[in-house]
Amino acid sequence: MITVPIAYYLILAAILFCIGIAAFLIKRNVITIFMSIELMLNAVNLTFVAFAHLWRQISGQIFVFFVMVVAAAEAAVGLAIIIALFRARQTLNVDEVDLLRN
């Protein structure tokens, strides 16, 4: 039976994390930027699960559970902030939200 090296899982997580960083920097829509944050959180969760498998420990999986809970709370609050932002500025483009710039 062919097994998969743990390093491959970690490299996959690194790929996803770096795509998340690139999307965070390139995207101009605030909802898509928020989605790329979720993508980065998922990549980190994958490394947690892979290391939990490596060390034969359950704590890594419990950490992922807590990350999921906090991500759910963060998504609710963040999307509410996006709705409030849209009400105030009538735009979702981050380039036009520059109140602190001047």
């Binding site: 699960v49 999986q61 999921m68």
Partner: peptide, 14 residues
Amino acid sequence: LYWSLGAEFLAAAQ
């Protein structure tokens, strides 16, 4: 992938 790493609960929660 979580399921293949032996984390069935996390796969369902995901």
